[in-house]
């Protein structure tokens, strides 16, 4: 325990934290920040205050779930439905944390702290850390992840505030464009990830079922569309694989 707390080690960690924060402050922050500009505008246009919009980014910090929440709140869904839909959207965070933990784990850091740090696990910082950390000495991996994620977190908050303020001050048609940013952004994120066959099938089924189920129930429609699309895609892909297609 004491050998990892040497002063030299501490300063190396601090340097890594800030260099990772600087790395993230470039393109990653720009892309994520811009997508949160869309969220900020959506928040404003849903009649939600700036403080609560920032609270959402601070406390949840997983954009898909935040958009699901605001949209379902907008159609007047019940708390149960909102919680279930957000939980289903964000369940992907668990395997992400599970795969990141052994990579960044530092025996010198008390275990309870990982419960705080895990709040910073979201797709961008996770993807960069998964790629970069294996080449680093173990004590520097956690500072890399934390610095990278902290920078993105700040960019997300700034983006939320900027989007909110922009929606208020630009002409109406531009505000509409900023709100439109939300579905477009996620659509293209998914377009980068079509090689995984089961997920690509889930996307296709979901896109067809989404509007259809919405007309049946504004409340439960989204969740059932997701459950059915995901389950049929998962099962269907296994069936195809068994037949060697």
């Amino acid at each position: 325990m004491t050998e990892t707390a040497l002063p030299g080690d501490q300063s190396a960690r601090r340097r890594m934290f800030f260099s990772a924060a600087k790395e993230a402050a470039g393109m990653p922050s720009l892309v994520l920040g811009a997508s949160y500009v869309g969220f900020g505008s959506l928040v404003r246009e849903s009649g939600i205050g700036l403080g609560l919009g920032l609270f959402s980014t601070l406390s949840a910090w997983a954009l898909p779930g935040q958009v699901v929440l605001v949209e379902l709140y907008g159609v007047g869904a019940s708390l149960l439905v909102i919680c279930l839909a957000v939980a289903l959207t964000n369940a992907r965070l668990m395997p992400m944390v599970i795969t990141l933990m052994p990579l960044v784990h530092d025996p010198a850091v008390p275990r309870w702290r990982y419960y705080l740090y895990s709040h910073l696990v979201a797709v961008t910082a996770w993807a960069f850390s998964m790629r970069r950390c294996p080449d680093m000495p173990r004590p520097l991996r956690l500072p890399y992840f934390l610095g990278f994620a902290a920078s993105l977190w700040i960019a997300s908050l700034l983006g939320t505030a900027l989007g909110f303020l922009l929606a208020d001050s630009v002409p109406r048609s531009i505000t509409l464009g900023l709100v439109f940013l939300n579905p477009i952004y996620f659509m293209l994120i998914f377009a980068t990830d079509l090689r995984h066959r089961a997920r690509a099938m889930a996307l296709a089924f979901g896109a067809v079922l989404g509007p259809f189920f919405h007309t049946i129930s504004h409340d439960w429609g989204l969740m059932f569309a997701g459950l059915i699309a995901g389950t049929v895609a998962f099962g269907g892909e296994r069936l195809l694989r068994r037949r060697h297609v």
Partner: peptide, 23 residues
Amino acid sequence: VGCIAYGLLAALIARMIVMPVGP
């Protein structure tokens, strides 16, 4: 679970484009 999340988000995206709620 990953497939369900993808299906749910695709459903939301399609709905937001085809039949948006709000502005």
